[in-house]
Design a binder for these strands. Sequence first.
DNA 1: CGTTTTTGACCTGCGC
DNA 2: GCGCAGGTCAAAAACG
Length: 193
Amino acid sequence: MDQGQDQTPLPSPTPPFFPPLNPPYVFTPSLPSSSLHPPLEPQILPDIDWVSLLSGQPGLGENGPMLESTSVIAHNGGEEDKGIKENNKRKGSRMKKATRPRFAFQTRSADDILDDGYRWRKYGQKAVKNSIYPRSYYRCTHHTCNVKKQVQRLSKDTSIVVTTYEGIHNHPCEKLMETLTPLLKQMQFLARF
DNA sequence: CGTTTTTGACCTGCGC
DNA sequence: GCGCAGGTCAAAAACG
């Protein structure tokens, strides 16, 4: 099932998603380009315990010590990934050893699904303890790409969606290419004169 | 009819 | 060892 993606060299240091870049990131709002939701006021959110969040520790969360916070928000396979490594130390074929980079950010949005330019297929949904909202699991639909993301709405502040990306896309952003291709063609055409 | 979503079952790690 | 929680699989259903 898994295909040894771990050895895949990272194509670039660029985060696997668009557009969040520098954590802690408050991305407001993030809505599909086609949607017509009224814009929401940008707002600085309270700190979150990203260590717990990113390492998949129990208590992801919305309750408890979560607000004690730290600035660690992106994981790149370094020391901070202990939790992930432990979590993936499995013998089954479906597990990876995983030192995959993980990034998480919050979005104040009415939509759970952010339009980040990539296509995702949902492969699971789980009820989360102490949360009225389930967590959804998505995988990039590109056949050679193994990037995953988790999406969960905070029950504490229902306007906030926490999205966690895991892995790096090894292919261009489809939507970006869609936009750029006609432009490139036009440039090539003009370049002939 | 191909693709995506839904959802229950299964697997694993962790705490007690 | 047991139960719980998180993550994934995979068959069936839904959708375009």
